[in-house]
């Protein structure tokens, strides 16, 4: 990021582990977590859709829990363990959730998809046999404007299968 003089800047030193890698940086307290991840760390796979906590495109895992990173400040994540979409695949092998989305055409433009996948990741970390209600509850916090959700539900079910037989 370009640094230009700005005499009102107040910064805080923060550190966090993202996808297993430790980062330290000075940030303005007003920097949202998503702007920090994208702008400072260059992890642009997390997307910004509404900046007021409705659409879910910016969802990341914060200490294992899916949260909306547009309505969390970077300073609030000081010391936290984060996971973003860049941390899902194992090298050239897609994570089972990613593979399920691919096989079920669970995405079209793909802008909302990282958020969906991270919420499913949290769910499947908690239970290997989620109920239909739990899947709905998980996906209900995300907006997708392309797919009409049907293929996303199918992808979620396939991901459950894949995780179980992994």
């Amino acid at each position: 990021m370009t640094k230009e003089p700005n005499d009102v800047t107040i910064t805080r030193r923060i550190s966090m582990t993202v996808n297993g890698e430790r980062h330290e940086a000075d940030v303005e307290p007003r920097t949202t977590l998503v702007d920090f991840l994208r702008g400072t760390l260059g992890l642009t796979g997390t997307h910004v859709g509404c900046e007021h906590g409705v659409c879910g495109a910016c969802t990341v895992l914060w200490n294992g829990k899916a949260v909306r990173s547009c309505i969390m400040l970077a300073v609030q994540a000081d010391g936290a363990e984060l996971k973003t979409v860049e941390g899902l695949a194992d090298g050239a092998t897609l994570h089972p959730i990613q593979q399920a989305f691919l096989e079920k055409h669970g995405l079209q433009c793909g802008f909302c998809t990282p958020g969906f996948m991270l919420s499913i990741y949290e769910l499947l970390g908690r239970t290997s046999a989620p109920t239909e209600e739990e899947i709905l509850d998980t996906l209900g916090g995300h907006l997708c404007r392309c797919t009409g959700y049907q293929s996303i539900v199918e992808a979620a079910h396939l991901a459950v299968e894949k995780m179980r037989t992994r």
Binding site: G53, G56, T59, W62, K65, A66, V67, R68, I71, M72, S119, E122, D137, T138, G140, G141, H142
Partner: peptide, 11 residues
């Protein structure tokens, strides 16, 4: 369970 969505309730 009626509060917003799990992603909000997590935080």
């Amino acid at each position: 369970q009626l509060i917003a969505h799990p992603q909000n309730r997590n935080q």
